[in-house]
């Protein structure tokens, strides 16, 4: 199978997020970027498919701080080719990012023919679009979201995909290829790769650079963000301070009051 994986970097929300002086964007100075979690699962699902059916995994990423580490790590995990879209002004919207991916997939002849495009179902900054549906529309391919397992069928012309609904109910789908899948989770957690292997990949492999493609609509945003803020909350937890022993006693007291103990 010829598999394309699309990766984007997003802010690590474990770190404190600050709003820039313009009041409309995040302050990027101290922002730590990590790979979008479901994109990482998309990569893992691609590697699992390659192990099962053979083929080639090509990873396409938007330029961002630390993206090189992520791409070399993808090589160390088993990706065959890694590419980075460079030269944009950063801070593109999801819709513009998806548009770039679509243009490149359409125009880079050596990416064709491909069987399947895997990307994360959603990212925490998807304010104006999701990537997978935009790709499916612009490339004219079938689309399925919230996928948690992909199994190739014997014909090589389709895959069986498991998709989540709600309440723990899932669905089994027949997906004709080529197709675009929004991956929620790979069937196994993303593999761990030792730092030594990543370092080796840095020496032996190369990240190919692609320029930002020209887009018909210029990739202009269709939304105006007038301001960003930390959520104003109506209520907040009463915080319990102290050593674990003290806090445990306070909690046990609350549980007892509520008749839970």
């Amino acid at each position: 199978m010829n598999i394309l994986v699309l990766l984007r970097m997003v802010p690590d929300v474990v770190e404190e997020l600050e709003i820039a002086p313009d009041g409309r964007t995040l302050d990027t100075e101290y922002l730590r970027m990590i790979v979008n979690e479901s994109d990482d699962h998309a990569l893992e699902q691609a590697l699992i498919l390659k192990e099962r059916k053979g083929g080639k995994v090509t990873v396409l990423a938007l330029d961002a701080p630390d993206v090189d580490d992520v791409l070399f790590s993808a090589v160390a995990k088993g990706a065959d080719r890694v590419m980075k879209i460079e030269g944009g002004d950063g801070g593109v919207t999801t819709r513009a990012a998806a548009g770039m991916f679509a243009e490149i997939i359409r125009n880079e002849k050596d990416l064709q023919p491909f069987d399947i495009v895997l990307t994360g179902v959603q990212a925490i900054d998807d304010l104006d679009a999701l990537v997978a549906p935009i790709l499916s529309h612009r490339l004219g391919l079938p689309y399925l979201a919230i996928v948690t397992k992909v199994t190739p069928d014997a014909t090589g012309k389709s895959v069986t995909a498991i998709r989540e609904f709600a309440g723990g109910v899932r669905g089994e789908f027949d997906v004709p290829l080529p197709a675009v899948l929004g991956i929620q989770a790979a069937e196994k957690p993303p593999r761990y790769v030792p730092v030594a292997k990543v370092r080796a990949a840095m020496k032996t492999s190369k990240i190919e650079s692609i320029g930002v493609p020209t887009m018909a609509d210029g990739g202009q945003p269709l939304l105006d963000v007038s301001h960003m803020r930390k959520p104003v909350v109506s209520g907040h937890a009463q915080m319990l301070d102290g050593e674990p022993e003290d806090v445990s006693k306070k909690l046990a007291g609350i549980f007892t009051e509520r008749g839970l103990l």
């Binding site: 929300v13 995040l26 925490i124 939304l223 960003m228 959520p231």
Partner: peptide, 14 residues
């Protein structure tokens, strides 16, 4: 609601 609930944005569509 953005960034896993850590930021809110006010948005006007064109």
């Amino acid at each position: 609601v953005l960034y896993g609930g850590k930021i809110e944005a006010t948005v006007t569509p064109r």
